[in-house]
């Protein structure tokens, strides 16, 4: 239960970090908050020859609202900084709804958005909320920076668009969506455990409480989170209190191809998707815009 020996480097700049990755392509592994990597190292499931710690790169810890109203989050911003930030609470409430379910307090203090996204666990909340909000990822690499959409970033289980020598530097969340309500529900065996299934729903509502658009993400079910807005097509044009949640849940369940694993069978996951979508929608229907429930 002790990690194997490794070389530790803590670069002070992005350029220095990229240089280390370029010079040690076989050995170097990026460490952000380490809340997934260090357990894997302690269990010797991961034995990197070198850790490149991003904690010394100040720009990656920035959390800023840009002039166009978008939120720019450095990869090293911890889960709890999002949860305690008033700008995030009011402008991007869906982030708080999802991220408060990341593990436990101690993990949320140290774990980071970027680390969670790059780890790309299918049950993680961050890839799901990035997909819901149409976030974009900035990848820094030897040939400069490139941008990919949230849907292109996570490719599969533990698989991302990052090429060797690249690292995730920033995530940009588009400017706040006014008039949207958000709901989240996940089912895990214990509080803070990886979800067996989860759903995030968003509903745009006009002044007469008629739904004008809907977004839905289901996660922890397939190899990666997936947008299933089509499951809400029956809700668009209806009043908020007339939405058929059961139909949306069934429609979402009919659209997924769940995996079976130690924790839940595919059959059970069909049922859980139905339940999560119904409960996420119920939460969104009740939720006044721009607030987070307790």
């Amino acid at each position: 239960m002790k990690p194997s020996a490794f070389v530790y480097r803590r670069p002070a700049s992005l350029a220095e970090a990229l240089d280390l990755l370029r010079r040690h392509p076989e050995d170097a592994r990026v460490i952000a908050g380490g809340q997934s990597l260090v357990p894997a190292m302690n269990l010797r499931m991961a034995t990197p020859g070198m850790l490149v710690d991003l904690a010394g790169i100040e720009t990656l810890s920035a959390l800023e609202v840009a002039s166009d109203g978008s939120l720019s989050a450095g990869a090293m911003v911890s889960h709890n900084r999002f949860l305690r930030d008033d700008r995030v609470k009011s402008g991007w409430p869906a982030i708080g709804l999802a991220v408060r379910h990341v593990a436990h307090e101690q993990i949320r203090n140290r774990g980071t958005m970027g680390g969670s996204l790059c780890h790309a666990d299918s049950a993680a909340e961050w890839p799901a909320v990035c997909l819901l909000l149409d976030a974009e990822m900035s990848l820094a690499g030897p040939r400069g920076e490139r941008t990919v959409t949230a849907d292109d970033f996570v490719r599969g289980l533990y698989e991302t668009a990052l090429e060797p020598g690249e690292l995730l530097s920033f995530v940009r969340f588009p400017a706040p969506l006014r008039g949207w309500r958000w709901g989240f529900h996940e089912i895990a065996r214990r509080r803070g455990d990886f979800a067996l299934a989860g759903a995030l729903a968003g509903l745009a509502v006009d002044e007469n409480f008629v739904v004008t658009a809907g977004r839905l993400v289901v996660f922890a079910v397939e190899d990666r989170a997936r947008r299933l807005d089509g499951a809400l097509s029956g809700a668009v044009g209806r009043r908020l209190d007339e939405i058929d949640k059961d139909l949306a849940g069934l429609s979402a369940a009919a659209s997924v191809d769940p995996r079976s694993d130690l924790h839940a069978s595919a059959e059970q996951r069909f049922h859980l998707v139905h339940a999560c979508v119904m409960r996420a929608l119920a939460a969104a229907m009740q939720e006044p815009t721009g607030t987070i429930n307790g």
Binding site: K2, Q35, V38, P39, Q106, I107, N109, R110
Partner: peptide, 27 residues
């Protein structure tokens, strides 16, 4: 547990609770 599940190693770092088994002393 030494893999971040049990919480027995919890310490405060700059006032925030963290798992001391999930970080290195050098950090």
């Amino acid at each position: 547990c030494e893999h971040g599940v049990c919480g027995a190693c919890t310490v405060l770092m700059d006032g925030d609770s963290v798992r001391a088994c999930l970080m290195f002393a050098v950090q």
